[in-house]
Design a protein around this nucleic acid. Structure first.
Lengths: 231, 231
DNA sequence: TTTGAGAATTAGCCTAGCCTAATGCCCTGT
DNA sequence: ACAGGGCATTAGGCTAGGCTAATTCTCAAA
């Protein structure tokens, strides 16, 4: 048992919480998070990341393979999932109880997640009826640290002819989200891919109401869908 | 026009916000806030206060008279009132919408007040119906920065025979607040002082329901009351 | 008028997190 | 097999905001 695992865990700083979240997201498909990816995601210079990675691996929150990248330890993953739970519960509460629209919640939740207590989060979750997905369709980790892992496919890579349900919008940009909402492209909507232009061209899809949409590659890659079985 | 008043106001740090609030509270009866009082209120060493006071007076938020103390400038007062508004709106929301009891809200609001946006505070205020007082009876500054100044007298200094209405409980200690709530000593209750022991002894008061309470000096000084006219 | 206690300030130091510039490592393409 | 490009790390510095120890100021009491 080394120094890191022995200590009774001092509270994490805002910065540390942000780094852990980044590493979580960057390693969600497996593999390592690289210094430069983390730097870009957090908008800091690469040496800042190197420095922080050193500290975090000393405190046992990440595993650092020099010149390769980092991964979360069990402890780090727990902390990251807690932050993600906070973030997504906050987003849910702001939209369903305080009239925020889904394009604006991210920034507000980003600041609040570092300031709320566990108790407050559980009260919010309770008031919402323990939601399982946030307003963008992302799964909310449980208080125990479990998160649903779904096999989703982006609209941009769905074969022509297939029907899917839009499950999650993987974006947090206000303008893009507003546009998608206008187009009716929100979680839960059913889509049938009716055509796609070659060379990463736009996808044509029909909505449940019979209207069609043309979705370019950039947006298509953000729309995570669940294929509808047997079609 | 000097450097301080010219700049477009960078956002205040958490620390700065805390210092401004302290100075506001310590100067609410007029006069200067001293270094050591601020240090005690914020639980930091006096030299930390001296250092911060230097910076804050350079940015035009306070007026510092060396070896005397500090006062808020107009700008500093505005910022302090904004923080106090945030704090009190948060306390109100947590108690009336999320089931917090009045002994626990302070700590939670203390952290949140640094993280909430103006927009969120106004939504909360709106959801509450623009409350004028927080759960402890303290007046909530308006968004424009106005705060009610009432002429209140503590229960400990109310003459025997007078009737008053308990207006505000000037404390934030969880245990004391729980005790007061048990005793029914919450804002709005009507009290008649029926006796007081000499040498800063306890005050005997009759509540509206005819029951009586014995309140020691320490607690009596925290119960701010409005005298009932013509009695 | 002087003196000394107590409060305030200055001096000097530390950590967290950031930065730029300099250096080092890895791997791919020739 | 190795040269070079690109990424990572180290070196060295900065600011905010704390700290302790040393010094200076103020004011009341003798």
């Amino acid at each position: 048992m080394n120094a890191a695992t022995r200590s009774p865990q001092p509270p994490l700083t805002r910065s540390v919480e942000d780094y852990l979240k980044s590493v979580f997201h960057l390693t969600s498909q497996g593999g390592f998070a690289t210094t430069s990816d983390i730097a870009e995601m957090l908008d800091v210079a690469p040496p800042s990341v190197s420095g922080m990675m050193k500290r975090l691996s000393e405190t046992g929150l990440i595993e650092h393979v020099p010149y390769r990248g980092v991964q979360l330890t069990h402890q780090g993953r727990r902390a990251a999932l807690q932050m993600i739970r906070r973030h997504r519960i906050l987003e849910s509460y702001l939209t369903s109880k305080l009239g925020y629209d889904w394009g604006d919640v991210h920034v507000e939740a980003e600041r609040l997640e570092h300031a709320v207590s566990e108790k407050l989060i559980e009260r919010l979750a309770d008031a919402l009826g323990e939601p399982r997905y946030d307003p963008h369709g992302a799964p909310i980790p449980t208080a125990a640290g479990e998160i649903e892992e779904a096999e989703l496919v982006t609209l941009a890579e769905t074969e022509v002819g297939r029907s899917v349900v839009l499950q999650e919008v993987g974006d947090e940009n206000t303008e893009r989200l507003h546009y998608l909402a206008e187009q009716g492209l929100t979680p839960g909507v059913r889509l049938t891919v009716i055509d796609r232009q070659p060379f990463n061209g736009p996808t044509m899809a029909r909505l449940g109401d019979g209207t069609t949409r043309v979705v370019g590659q950039e947006l298509g890659l953000l729309l995570f869908c669940r294929p509808i079985d047997g079609e």
